[in-house]
Design a protein around this nucleic acid. Structure first.
Lengths: 95, 95
DNA sequence: TAAATAATTAAACGAATGTCTAAATATTTA
DNA sequence: TAAATATTTAGACATTCGTTTAATTATTTA
């Protein structure tokens, strides 16, 4: 919980998550998107992984990162209480 | 955006938000819930207000705090992209 | 108007965070 | 096996963050 919220607190990490919506990518490709050193990105990836927001899979000398449902479910669940309080609109029919 | 995510990053502030689901409360009543000095709580309330997660209304010598829809909508909107990616389940019928 | 109550603002300080460069590890290729 | 490539780990450092106590502001009550 705590670590997951901490992970989405940083703007760079949120950008990484949005970037990964487009599909899984290796660490180098992710780092290219940012004007920041590779070790910094590596550290951000580690925190996102700790928060269960991304998965890491080693493929040869590369590490492929992809979005992890479980961290998002956790945060989503926390927000449910407020969504009910505010009665956020929902689609009439399940898509 | 940035300030709103920062606001929900702290566990005490998240607890304050959950507490306010039960209804609006003045600063003193909120502070009572926590083993922490009043100025600390006051500071947390300020950050939550900056993040548009709560509203403050002065009533005499009291200040009444309540949940503010707008901050929650912001975060909810950010999550929508991921909800679609993961296809989070939705109720079949609008309640 | 003086005292009491509610709450914030100010100042200080240790802990946590994000970034960098340099070094280390692992894997592939020549 | 040596060099190149991909990535992480380690160490250092400035900045931000959360907390406290003391002081200040605003409002109510005796």
């Amino acid at each position: 919980m705590e670590i997951t919220f901490k992970a989405i607190n940083d703007p760079t990490r949120r950008e990484i998550l949005v970037f990964l919506i487009g599909g899984a990518q290796n660490a180098g490709e992710i780092a290219k998107q940012f004007s920041m050193s590779k070790p910094s990105i590596s550290h951000h990836l580690d925190l996102l992984k700790q928060g269960n927001l991304i998965l890491a899979e080693k493929k040869g000398q590369y590490i492929i990162y992809s979005l992890n449902r479980s961290g998002f479910e956790l945060v989503h669940g926390w927000f449910q209480g407020f969504a009910q309080y505010f009665e956020f609109p929902k689609p009439k029919i399940r898509l």
